[in-house]
Design a protein around this nucleic acid. Sequence first.
DNA 1: CTCTAAAATCTGATATATCAGATATCAAAT
DNA 2: ATTTGATATCTGATATATCAGATTTTAGAG
Lengths: 221, 221
Amino acid sequence: MTDANIILTKSIRDAVYEKLKDAILSEQYKPGHHLKERELAKLYGISTTPLKEALRRLEQEGLVTTSARRGTFVSTDIMNSIEEINWARSALEGVAARLAALKISDAEISQLTGVVEQMRVFTEQKNAEKLLILNGDYHKLIRTFAKNNYIVQQIEAIHSFDRSFRQKALSHEEELERGFQEHANIYRNICARDADGAEQAMISHIRRTIVFVKSSTEQSL
Amino acid sequence: MTDANIILTKSIRDAVYEKLKDAILSEQYKPGHHLKERELAKLYGISTTPLKEALRRLEQEGLVTTSARRGTFVSTDIMNSIEEINWARSALEGVAARLAALKISDAEISQLTGVVEQMRVFTEQKNAEKLLILNGDYHKLIRTFAKNNYIVQQIEAIHSFDRSFRQKALSHEEELERGFQEHANIYRNICARDADGAEQAMISHIRRTIVFVKSSTEQSL
DNA sequence: CTCTAAAATCTGATATATCAGATATCAAAT
DNA sequence: ATTTGATATCTGATATATCAGATTTTAGAG
């Protein structure tokens, strides 16, 4: 409740969209759950208009399914939607790494080096919490250095989806070391201005993570 | 006017979404044009509620930009250059080809074969007009076979921006034959279920086209 | 004439009422 | 007891009214 109220500047529509998305991704609303417009509107103390707009957006993203005058339901296969989105992310972050390798300046390499060195420290300390933040910074730096606004926008639109996803990835200890090695590998390729190598390293890093989280989630069922 | 009324089964929301999208893509509403909710609602004889939902969807696709209580405007694609967008397109169509290679059924291969055979004929006839349509069908089939809704949406959002781009690509005769060879190569990789090969073939095909169009456009200036 | 501030106006955002399709309920017929 | 169909009810879809931020207009001071 508290964190939602921090966002005072946002419209009700966007606030309720974020709230619902988080609730669905964290499985507070389980697959198949009926999201009733009037009920939710009353619960959140808002009208159905912005709520409806939020539901439409979630529908387009595949998180809910609406049947006219029957109801809106949380999609039965959320993991599939998340996986679909992460395939797109792998492609977009891959090409971002390529462009970064082509365009990066020496000053920017220094910046990236600084982050990688910090990551090395926290990996040795097995500090998953700090690493989660640093990993975010690392990926953000790379797409910034790609200097392609459209790609940055698309990647950041995807980001909120896999907050929970990346958290799961780092909850396994062996993943910390492997993740760092892959990040270091991407880093080396970018520094060497090896566009093909950087793109491939980034793509296989993200796709391996997809498969890893998927399989470890399925095991826990 | 008449064709819109044929769709009686659809919701007003979807009908007005398509109507607006067509109008924007055909440049009846030019970039920068102010789409006023009340004005359009009155024009179409509907209320602002479904109209607003249609506008939100167009906003998410990037066709319009809304500033709260200032207005909704047809996007000016000046923000993101055609080149920027096409880097994203190459990555997304590449991963679509990969997924198609992984998931394609025998029946779907037959469908794709049919299109490729037609393309062969029109390439020999140097029929650029027909090839433009078939190329579109070909790419659309591949992304459909990828069975990833999110990626399909992203690619089609990009398409609505640069119809002119692919037209330019085929305006050079030597490009017809080279384009067909590349398409045939992608096709072979997908049929062989070679995911890596299909992705690489698609990516290099699109990126070569980007460079080609860019250089030939610069020459003509 | 210029500048400023208040008010009128324009616009999207939100709230509420109503419509209409889909489903569930239940009583009557067999 | 089962079936059927009328009806009550639930739900999203749509229409309309109102709110509030942003812009423009304009009246008044200098």
